[in-house]
Lab assay of single mutants.
Amino acid sequence: MSIQHFRVALIPFFAAFCLPVFAHPETLVKVKDAEDQLGARVGYIELDLNSGKILESFRPEERFPMMSTFKVLLCGAVLSRVDAGQEQLGRRIHYSQNDLVEYSPVTEKHLTDGMTVRELCSAAITMSDNTAANLLLTTIGGPKELTAFLHNMGDHVTRLDRWEPELNEAIPNDERDTTMPAAMATTLRKLLTGELLTLASRQQLIDWMEADKVAGPLLRSALPAGWFIADKSGAGERGSRGIIAALGPDGKPSRIVVIYTTGSQATMDERNRQIAEIGASLIKHW
């Protein structure tokens, strides 16, 4: 067993022997301040990774656009098919120029040779490549099948209805392509620590998230040296922004954090800054 596999296998073990965790309302004060600064709703939840206990939450059962955070769930569904012998990570998928959609920095470079399922998941999570996500959605049967996968996990809230990039439209009061912070946090925890996926697939999923290259201005910008984070960000229309993450000190994750916002007129930089400040408060009061 590799060191990384050992780390993920012992996530519940280490967490069980940690000192009790206590909620700190100071972080919620910052979440509410972010709402004021952005002029928009902000949803927040913080779960203990081992027990699933909610440590703090704000608007945990209000719907927010998922945006690209759905790509972690998508690759979880792909990995479940791999575990069941219905898919192979090494299978190569070929596609054409007509398949390319807006923001496809990886797939646009491989029109000639195609990409493997493993490479597509890596591109979808680490670079948020939209064509990679659409190609992977095709392998599982489309958005409705991802929703069905989530329902089978016990998540009857999260739903995907459309493809990239239309799913980022974020129309107010439109339930399409949305989740709730509580539902997303619980589902992410199941994917990373539950028995739904094999140990190898859980490790692969967290490795992809740990290698995320496009979430630097968010929670990662607030992390002290030595902290662990595996995350996936999302951005959408109407001032929408979000991030889902597993993080913790001492090089291992111990909490799940989900943050979503929508309806702001603020710039992307300002949305990023507010999420980073929430992260800084979380870490300060850990």
Score class of each variant (00 low, 15 high):
75 C>P: 00
145 E>R: 11
220 R>T: 03
173 N>K: 12
217 P>I: 09
81 R>S: 06
168 N>T: 13
76 G>M: 06
197 L>C: 04
256 I>W: 01
113 D>S: 12
33 D>L: 09
35 E>H: 03
243 I>P: 01
107 T>G: 05
245 A>S: 10
272 N>R: 04
106 V>T: 15
282 L>K: 01
72 V>W: 04
173 N>D: 13
69 T>P: 04
144 K>W: 11
79 L>V: 11
76 G>F: 05
39 G>D: 13
66 M>Q: 06
38 L>K: 09
227 W>M: 03
248 G>W: 02
239 G>D: 03
32 K>H: 14
214 V>M: 06
225 A>Y: 06
154 G>T: 05
272 N>C: 05
201 S>L: 12
129 D>N: 01
63 R>E: 11
244 I>V: 14
192 L>Y: 06
247 L>Y: 04
211 A>G: 14
253 P>V: 11
116 T>C: 15
230 A>L: 05
166 E>Y: 14
281 S>A: 09
59 R>Y: 04
205 L>M: 09
104 S>G: 11
200 A>N: 15
55 L>N: 12
95 Y>P: 04
61 E>P: 01
277 E>I: 08
176 R>T: 11
109 K>C: 11
246 A>K: 04
199 L>K: 11
130 N>E: 01
51 S>K: 06
160 L>Q: 11
102 E>A: 10
90 G>E: 13
67 M>R: 01
91 R>G: 05
235 A>P: 03
240 S>H: 06
123 A>K: 02
190 K>A: 15
274 Q>P: 05
74 L>D: 02
171 I>Q: 15
228 F>Q: 07
115 M>C: 09
25 P>D: 08
53 K>F: 09
79 L>G: 02
247 L>N: 01
116 T>I: 13
283 I>Y: 15
99 D>E: 08
186 T>V: 14
46 E>I: 14
126 T>C: 07
125 I>T: 09
229 I>Q: 01
67 M>K: 00
50 N>Q: 07
284 K>C: 07
128 S>E: 00
232 K>A: 01
94 H>A: 08
239 G>F: 02
286 W>H: 05
213 K>Y: 05
129 D>C: 02
48 D>N: 06
215 A>T: 14
43 G>D: 02
118 R>M: 07
80 S>Q: 15
239 G>L: 01
108 E>F: 15
46 E>V: 13
277 E>H: 06
272 N>W: 02
68 S>K: 00
178 T>N: 03
85 G>V: 09
159 R>Q: 14
188 L>T: 07
127 M>T: 13
216 G>E: 08
195 E>I: 05
173 N>C: 08
58 F>H: 06
211 A>Y: 13
101 V>M: 14
112 T>K: 14
268 M>G: 11
252 K>F: 15
47 L>A: 12
242 G>S: 13
112 T>S: 11
121 C>D: 03
215 A>G: 11
163 W>A: 07
149 F>N: 15
159 R>F: 12
221 S>H: 10
214 V>P: 07
257 V>H: 01
85 G>N: 06
194 G>N: 12
194 G>E: 08
74 L>H: 00
263 G>R: 13
157 V>R: 08
92 R>I: 11
173 N>V: 08
109 K>M: 08
282 L>N: 03
45 I>A: 15
56 E>I: 05
275 I>E: 02
34 A>H: 04
222 A>V: 06
171 I>N: 15
225 A>G: 09
149 F>W: 10
94 H>K: 07
56 E>L: 09
91 R>I: 04
107 T>D: 00
237 E>H: 14
31 V>W: 00
117 V>S: 03
280 A>K: 15
179 T>P: 00
237 E>R: 12
188 L>C: 07
260 Y>W: 02
190 K>N: 15
102 E>R: 06
190 K>H: 15
